[in-house]
């Protein structure tokens, strides 16, 4: 059973095409990395799947049913820079936002919801910061609050946009742990990612994107030098050994790509 099925997705901003005919099917219980250079359309891909921006063509199915009917199963961790962290609210409040659908319109959060939100904060090691104003949190802590909100939502398919960018090592580990837990629970995780060195460690599936889909599939098959060159247009610099082209384990630690 596929957790997510996308066919012929085309998106443009002001008539300038950003995504062209993207199709893929992500198996249930997998962790997929969406990889591509800056401006490749990674965020756009996620947002158009989630119907946050309009698409010209394209069909999205979640567990075989149209997206619109399955919205409740979707969790989302936006790029941290997308919200105003000076907004007057605290960490617990942000996590509770993940429960708004469960709480329902008109109603206020009940004790049970608040207890649940606190548990989610605890799971990401942030319980001690529940009442802290969000602007007083570090980048990593803010990211954890977002994670806790996604946890609170209790979804089946999670989308995360660059969760590792600008976070400390402990937060990075916490995110990995969370992704693995989700996978064990049979949930599906889709992550926009830009650090090539960690791709093979973190993801069992890889989606290479640069305006068009370059390749999608299991990491060892897809994360190859040839594919990466296609994706990054030859801007890859290999300092030592290449990824899956070499069979040797841990050979991937010296791969970098030059951004313009």
């Amino acid at each position: 059973m596929h957790a997510l099925h996308v066919s012929d997705l085309t998106v443009s901003y002001d008539k300038k095409p950003v995504l062209e005919d993207v199709s893929f099917s992500i198996p249930n219980g997998s962790i997929t990395g969406i990889i591509g250079p800056n401006g490749a359309g990674k965020s756009t891909l996620i947002k158009s799947i989630l119907r946050l921006i309009p698409s010209i063509t394209g069909e999205v199915k979640v567990y075989g049913e149209p997206y619109a009917q399955q919205k409740k199963l979707i969790g989302y961790v936006p790029q941290r820079s997308e919200v105003d962290w000076d907004f007057p609210t605290n960490a617990l409040d942000v996590v509770l936002m993940g429960r708004y659908r469960h709480i329902g319109i008109f109603k206020r959060a009940k004790k049970a919801e608040i207890t649940w939100a606190r548990e989610c904060l605890q799971k990401v090691g942030m319980l001690g910061y529940a009442e802290r104003q969000i602007s007083q949190l570090s980048g990593g802590q803010q990211q954890r609050v977002f994670l806790a909100r996604a946890l609170a939502q209790d979804a089946m398919v999670y989308f995360m946009d660059e969760p590792f960018s600008g976070v400390d090592a402990a937060t990075e580990r916490a995110i990995i742990q969370l992704m693995k837990n989700w996978k064990q629970e049979g949930k599906t995780v889709i992550v926009v990612h830009h650090d090539l060195q960690t791709v093979e460690d973190y993801f069992d599936h890889v989606l290479l994107l640069n305006k068009q889909l370059v390749d999608f599939g299991e990491t060892p098959k897809v994360f190859t030098l040839e594919n990466l060159e296609k994706t990054y247009g030859g801007k890859i610099a290999f300092l030592q050994k290449t990824p899956s082209t070499e069979k040797e384990h841990h050979a991937h630690g010296h791969l970098a790509f030059e951004s313009e």
Partner: peptide
Amino acid sequence: AIFYKEIKLSTFDPQYALLIGV
């Protein structure tokens, strides 16, 4: 008072609000 939560969320994070059906 009626739309308190919805106003708050759609102000702080409109995209997430849209996602969860606000």
